[in-house]
Amino acid sequence: MSAAPLVEVRDLAVSFSRGGQSIAAVNGVSFDLAAGEVMGVLGESGSGKSVTLRALLRLLPEHRTRIGGSVRVDGHDVLALRGRALDDYRGAVTSMIFQEPMLSFDPVFTIGRQIAESVKRHTGVDDKAARARALEMLDRVRIPSPARRLEAYPHEMSGGMRQRAMIALALACRPKLLLADEPTTALDATVQIQILLLLRELQQEFGMAVIFVTHDVGVAAEVSDRLGVMYAGRLVEIGPAVDVIESPSHPYTRGLLSSIVRGDMRGTRIEAIPGAPPDLAALPAGCSFAPRCAHVRPECLASVPPMRAATEDHAARCILVGPLAPA
């Protein structure tokens, strides 16, 4: 990994204007991702993780959204892409799997046509070749009797099957970066595991980088090489998945991890994080977790703490953590 990273996100900031109010959904997110690396992003709803993903594919409604910072993916200055160049980038360099496969397929087009459409768009092949590619992809994600499924409409398939088809669609043009927005949240527990295993297998086979957004700590631990934790639109901790889970540095991460319910906890009191996430329309000046933090100090309230390194590749946005992180 001597070359530049595949993904470079610097100070990404996203705010929505709604009725004269500005809602700061993402507030200065920076991270790198190497080719073939899987990064999990953990956070509760409203933490800005999905918005970050959508910003990477420029899927946010343009006239109501202000995006700042910079995003480079495989040499593309994503935030500067316009018109045709943006369309060429989407789906070919970076593609996305959505949370609810029922809602993310067009209900009145067949699955085969929706995959072929993407293939045709990016490779310029004819109908027949595009359909052949769609069939190959359906087979690849192990949909039974794929030839028949090509002609199926989304409502004729089960949730797990649809998510498989969504994966087939997302990978049909061999993207270098796959964005997965809670791809297993809407599925049954048994199906979740199958989809996760499939994703991991395909990730290794295709060698693509993946950003996997989830609020499920178990899922994040299962799939990620590195793990980022988001809170109130900021990355509050990032590091190797094992380190973040085994020795969390940020008080929020610790709270999040200790709020997982496990079988051996029967009878013990579950520790919840007190309070509620801050109002994104009026963020506090300092650390946004400070109002809920048990270790809060006066300097926490004065300004947003910088990223500080706990170990060489593990950092957290908390003044209690070791020396200042580089970059």
Partner: peptide, 25 residues
């Protein structure tokens, strides 16, 4: 405003391509 339109844009369809889906829906 539906999610699948974001998905269509996300796979790189042009405005014209998306419009075809809008028409059929």
């Amino acid at each position: 405003a539906r999610e699948f339109v974001a998905a269509l844009r996300g796979k790189g369809l042009t405005d014209r391509g998306v419009f075809m889906h809008v028409v059929k829906n």
